[in-house]
């Protein structure tokens, strides 16, 4: 039995296979309508979510399975003080696979240690978000044709941005990758991520506060939201929340083939005027999330 807690739980070959499977599902959705018939997915979301939870649920429904679960901690027994371990032991008796989002970092790993069924990390605090990374990789593959030889700019909250951490870990395994890290000093990438996936692998990396300065070099621009829910101090959030706002004007020097990604939701870090730019890939990215999660659910359930 396998779980997906960290994107590196999957080999690059497995990721390639998932991407190919997701593409096939897009082309031939009818061939997959019954693949998970009589299987149940439990979505245990201790933290709010729109895209991730609904895309997991849509994914399972489109595979012919069914879903159960909760969408906030207040409507689960955790509000009564139940531990993650106990919750998962119970739910793994009711479902065939679990997708868990939790505000505590490492909660899905604890869940996978206690569960009798596969557990998927659907985001744990400011730590990791491997299925968003799968959606990001599918999007990059579809938009750019390859996962190699790319200069990837990551902009905004690189400290608490779990999608950023997982994406860097994943992309560090491909050839010809260069990272450009764009953030205020207070929201720089954590040293463990930088050391493990960039410095020790000798991957070229530039750090800057200025998006404009590096825009013309980028093949991918991965924008992120400064997340209010990660701050203990509201003053810090208010000071940093508008650090980067992408507008059509700032894209003047960008490559014509640039892809702009964002895990969403956005607040104001990408102006709505950018949405009509063909380089804006973030809505396609969100849609891709459903297909790659369908492929993942099938893989973890051992469905061919």
């Amino acid at each position: 039995m396998r779980s997906l807690i960290d994107i590196l739980d999957l080999t690059t070959e497995e990721i390639d296979a998932l991407i190919e499977k997701a593409k096939d599902i897009m082309l031939r959705p009818d061939a997959y309508r019954e693949k998970c018939r009589y299987k149940k997915l439990a979505t245990l979301f201790f933290e709010p979510s729109t895209r991730t939870r609904l895309s997991f649920e849509a994914a399972m429904l489109e595979l012919g399975g069914s879903v159960l679960g909760f969408s906030e901690a207040a409507s689960s027994s955790s509000a009564k003080g139940e531990s993650v371990s106990d919750t998962v032991k119970i739910v793994s008796g009711y479902a065939d696979i679990i997708a868990m989002r939790h505000f505590k970092e490492g909660a899905p790993l604890v869940a996978s240690m206690k569960s009798d069924v596969p557990v998927i990390n659907a985001g744990d605090g400011g730590h990791n978000h491997p299925t968003q990374t799968l959606a990001d990789l599918l999007t990059i593959k579809r938009e750019k044709g390859s996962l190699n030889d790319l200069t990837i700019g990551l902009c905004g909250d690189l400290k608490f941005g779990r999608t950023v951490h997982s994406l860097i870990a994943a992309m560090s395994r491909y050839k010809g990758i260069k990272f450009t890290l764009i953030s205020p000093d207070e929201l720089k990438l954590p040293s463990y991520v930088k050391n493990t996936y960039i410095t020790l692998k000798n991957i070229p990396c530039t750090e800057t506060n200025s998006l404009e300065e590096v825009m013309s070099n980028l093949d991918i621009l991965y924008m992120t939201r400064v997340q209010k829910e990660r701050f203990f101090n509201e003053e810090d959030y208010l000071r940093l929340k508008d650090s980067y706002i992408l507008t059509p004007d700032k894209l003047k020097n960008a490559k014509k083939e640039l892809s702009i990604l964002h895990p969403l939701p956005r607040v104001n870090e990408i102006s709505t005027e950018v949405d009509s730019d063909p380089r804006a890939s973030y809505f396609r990215q969100a849609k891709n999330g459903k297909y790659i999660r369908m492929a993942l659910i099938m893989m973890l359930l051992g469905v061919e």
């Binding site: 531990s83 505590k104 909660a107 744990d124 400011g126 730590h127 463990y192 020790l200």
Partner: peptide, 21 residues
Amino acid sequence: KNPRCITSTEPGIHHIFKLSN
């Protein structure tokens, strides 16, 4: 020491660290 870590609230789990390098 991370207050956001699950070990700060979850009872009965081992505190495990691995050698990074």
